[in-house]
Design a protein around this nucleic acid. Structure first.
Length: 584
RNA sequence: GCGCCCGUAGCUCAGUGGAUAGAGCCCCCGCCUUCUAAGCGGGUUGUCGUUGGUUCGAAUCCAACCGGGCGCGCCA
């Protein structure tokens, strides 16, 4: 990559300058060399600010240092057409077309693997997310966690990690008992019985569709059960229906888990009791007021936490400790747990529990996602669970489509609350980035079709022969991958056109770096915005420059650029899980 | 009261210690004989919540304060 190359060029120059005693008392490079893209075009294509960072160590002005370094820089003209020192001490480089062509060749060669890295090679990561209770609908907040977790997983996989995705099902305990009471009542009512619906439970509107499914499958055969048996039976049946429904809904969002991990299974095989025993053996728990407590305060929590209540049942924390211990034992190098921000109070407790069990809490990364406000035309959509006016995730998907849901939920940073505008998400214009990016991909496809498929003549109406035969096209594709100079004719002498051509290619080349940065920052949303930038650069190129021209070499080179652009768009859309349509 | 997150253009938001803080929307002006105008170009818009500190350099790091959200249970 050109940045790496320039970095080592500058590094060599600095070493030379040091050896020649031009950098005062400095004996070794004290700061990493960073090559960055200047904001302003007049500052060149790439720049290095190392002289500014060295100023205090060298005890000289950044400008003089930059000049000393620049005097020792040597680069082939094919890489850099020129470079200069600018105040207050930057060294600015202008790229030659050779490197731009080299980038396009690289993209063509790597194809779907362009941008992939091995940063995470050998790292096994478990990403746990969604983990909604199987007691009703999913809402847009679950959707956010789901999309974020999925994008992050894709991104980790794309950067070489071995990724597994897991959904933790809270399929036991008080919320399931409550589901049982509501489901049993709803079941009886649907089958013509007059019974009261439990007060303060899950709203009937939110579970009735699942009860209908249960009745559809099993009819009224459970109607004669006692209340206790009925509640248990209906809890079991409804839970399964809901889990199945959640699975199908998430699948529509292109989210598929390697494992749906049952909390109940932890209890059934004694893992929760076992973990309590471990706390005790390690001297990390004690009894007080009839309950069993974790010494969480010793490990950074604000106070101790109850593991087992005086009533004899275990807390959520106890099961979570058992679950996370199981994760550690399964041998992952890193555990990522994604929770809604309303659970942030539990993070120190979980970390303490993990540490108390002798595991490294540093390996456990808890990422919190903030709330999603639903809007319509800029107006807040008011929701109340009690009033039954909650807009569910499936309703949003129904209205705006899975791609728009994914894009908007993927685009933001998880720690920021977001406004999701239903009307905006449906728009088919530039205002809607999801649409705009897909449109750019479709436009690339349209140009390629134009060159490769017969098109009807505007005047005669007869189909004209395509510009290129399949054989010629196959030959072109081979050349794109093997010969960088095939791209050289694409550039225009007119600097207004050239700027757009260069911007697009440099943007495509940026993908690798964007991927790595997004992964390290755990912000897949950056790639969504990057995709928008690619789309924008493509549009500008398209407006200023024709791809299919009367000159075969130029056409060949520009078709190569379109293929590369389409490829990068497809790769980035793949990570954020938005489809890349060929026509719109 | 304590803890976590947030505060950047009229609105929605980017901005990982570097050059003159950016994009979209909104508003105004241009542009369709030409590969998708579902578009493009140009113009206007700022006490980066406030005050201090660190630094050659701060929207970015530190401290205090102000404003908003969330959490502080033997609930899940």
């Amino acid at each position: 990559m050109i940045k790496d190359k320039l970095k080592s060029v500058v590094e060599t120059a600095v070493q030379k300058a040091i050896a020649a005693g031009k950098l005062g008392a400095l004996s070794a490079l004290s700061t990493p060399i960073v090559i960055e893209k200047p904001r302003l075009a007049e500052h060149g294509d790439l720049a290095c600010g190392v002289a500014l960072k060295l100023a205090s160590a060298v005890r000289s002005s950044p400008l003089k240092i930059a000049e000393a370094i620049a005097a020792d820089i040597s680069v082939p003209e094919i890489d850099v057409s020129r470079f200069e020192v600018a105040a207050p001490g930057f060294i600015n480089f202008r790229l030659g077309t050779g490197w731009l062509c080299e980038s396009l060749k690289e993209i063509s060669k790597l194809g779907a693997d362009f941008g992939r890295s091995n940063l995470g090679a050998g790292q096994k990561v478990l990403v746990e997310y969604v983990s909604a209770n199987p007691t009703g609908d999913l809402h847009i907040g679950h959707g956010r966690g789901a999309v974020y977790g999925s994008c992050l997983s894709n991104l980790l996989a794309f950067t070489g990690h071995e990724v597994e995705q897991e959904f933790y099902i809270n399929d036991t305990g008080e919320q399931i008992a409550q589901l049982g009471r509501c489901a049993w009542a709803c079941y009886q009512r649907k089958l013509g019985q007059t019974v009261d619906y439990p007060e303060g439970g899950y709203p009937e509107v939110s579970i009735v569709q699942f009860i209908e499914t249960v009745i559809g499958k099993q009819g009224d055969q459970h109607l004669n059960l006692s209340a206790a048996e009925g509640e248990q039976k209906l809890a079991e049946l409804t839970k399964e229906v809901i889990i199945d429904w959640q699975r199908k809904l998430l699948l529509q969002l292109k989210i598929e888990f390697n494992c749906w991990y049952s909390e109940l299974s932890l209890h059934e095989r004694g893992a929760v009791e076992a973990v309590l025993e471990q706390f005790s053996q390690r001297g990390m728990s004690y009894e007080s007021e009839g309950a069993l407590w974790l010494k969480a305060k010793e490990l950074g929590d604000e106070r101790d936490r109850v593991l087992k209540k005086s009533a004899g049942n275990t807390t959520y924390l106890a099961a979570d400790a058992a679950y996370h211990l199981d994760k550690f034992k399964r041998g992952y190098d890193r555990l990522i747990t994604i929770w809604g921000a309303d659970h942030h109070g539990q993070v120190p407790g979980l970390k303490a529990a993990v540490e108390a069990l002798g595991q490294d809490p540093e390996k456990l990364e808890v990422i919190l996602t903030q709330i999603v406000n639903l809007q319509r035309d800029g107006q807040m959509v008011r929701m109340s669970k009690r009033m039954g006016t909650v807009v569910t995730l499936d309703e949003v998907m129904e209205e705006v489509g899975a791609d728009a849901v994914r894009y908007y939920l993927a685009e933001s940073n998880p720690q920021n609350p977001i406004n999701f505008d239903l009307e905006l998400a449906k728009q088919t214009s530039r205002e809607n980035p999801a649409f705009y990016i897909q449109y750019a991909h479709a436009r690339c496809c349209a140009i390629l079709r134009r060159a490769l498929e017969p098109t009807p003549n505007a005047e005669s109406g007869r189909a004209e022969q395509p510009l290129l035969s399949p054989e010629q096209w196959a030959e072109y594709l081979k050349e794109y991958q093997s010969n960088a100079s095939v791209f050289e004719p694409l550039f225009d002498l007119d600097s207004h056109v050239f700027i757009h051509q260069k911007s697009l290619i440099m943007r495509l080349q940026d993908f690798c770096e964007e991927v790595e940065e997004a992964m390290l920052a755990r912000m897949p949303g950056r790639l969504a915005r990057y995709a928008y930038d690619v789309a924008n650069d493509l549009q500008r190129f398209y407006e200023s420059c024709r791809v299919i021209t009367s000159e075969p070499d130029v056409t060949k080179a520009r078709l190569g650029l379109i293929v590369a652009t389409r490829q990068v768009l497809a790769n980035v859309l793949g990570i954020i899980g938005v489809s890349a349509p060929e026509r719109m």
